[in-house]
Design a protein around this nucleic acid. Structure first.
Lengths: 177, 177
DNA sequence: TGAAAATACATTACACGTTATATAACATGT
DNA sequence: ACATGTTATATAACGTGTAATGTATTTTCA
């Protein structure tokens, strides 16, 4: 039973721990997305959401809005274009820029996501984080413990009583499964 | 000037946000490591720390201790072996297992890290997180804002000669370095 | 005891972030 | 107007996580 060195080291390994939790959350989110039959990656959603909120944006604006570098945005947007969800046209005044907008298919996916998928994800994450309090490290431990007890896909319903596993309140903190 | 969609979406994009913060923290941590002249990646440290704490461990035990999958651990340990920091020998009773231990070079690096590098990193991260409070989203925003004001490398309080001081006009009053 | 299952590690392919750099379009100064 | 610099995007190379699968070894049990 090896200990969790990243957790035990606290502030020293905070970067590794954030990445680890983020990857776990994205993987769990992906499960929820798949349960709705949507063929999209969790990391691609922020791009669609940004265009939905602000209208057509350039690649550089999207990179900044999503918080990644421009090459990463270029690749993700190319994938979304291959999926037929977005399309790029040259900007009117400046031929260097490409304005990216939603296709009809993309708009349909966003509309459905806003109605069904995103509320479901948000409910699950909110449930996971609802009882968190204390220091940052306390709350990170709470997230890890909570995910071990019930992954996000089991938290999409509103009532915690629906969970097949014990809830966080019934299990001592620090327990590993 | 584009908005930060990941931040604005809160719980919905929590996974993306955790990954983003983790990558930023690891990159900042890497800067501190480099300022000490150590040629090691931030993500490799937990492996050395785990062996240092528990003695020689198998690849599977290390993967569990660090919280990544076995192929990832195999690759990182191969890199550390190439650097001459660890070595693997077949386990005594079970020829399938490989026990990974520190070389003399690896032990020297760990000893030096425990004395100098790790305290410096921990000091920086602790400084970043010292004033955080409130909900998880509040604290995440605090981390992002804090990193924008002063990256980890400016929060170590040691090796100050390596850090160039920002001009007064770029930093809000009361900021600590 | 010997076939089948389980275990431990290696390998491959892929996802998705990064940095560095190339290229095309626009902006500027003499 | 034209050389030069800047900006927007594309491309390449790489880092490090994942899942899926291969292979050697050990364990199980009929």
């Amino acid at each position: 039973m090896a200990d969790d060195i990243v957790r035990d080291f606290g502030y020293l390994c905070l970067g590794s721990r954030f990445r680890r939790i983020g990857e776990r959350l994205q993987a769990d989110t992906q499960q929820i997305i798949q349960s709705f039959g949507a063929e999209i990656q969790a990391g691609q959603y922020p791009f669609l959401a940004a265009i939905d909120r602000s209208g057509p944006l350039t690649i550089g604006e999207l990179a900044e809005a999503v918080g990644i570098t421009q090459p990463g945005a270029t690749r993700t947007l190319a994938q979304l274009a291959d999926l037929g969800l977005v399309e790029a046209r040259a900007s009117d005044g400046d031929q260097r820029r490409k304005l990216v907008s939603l296709t009809d298919t993309g708009r349909a996916l966003v509309d459905r996501s806003k109605n069904e998928i995103w509320p479901s994800i948000e409910r699950a994450v909110r449930d996971l984080c609802s009882d968190l309090q204390g220091t940052l490290l306390d709350q990170l431990a709470g997230i890890e413990d909570g995910l071990a007890i019930a992954p996000l896909a089991r938290r999409t319903t509103k009532k915690a009583e629906d969970h097949q596993c014990p809830t966080a309140s019934t299990v001592p903190p620090g327990t590993r499964f």
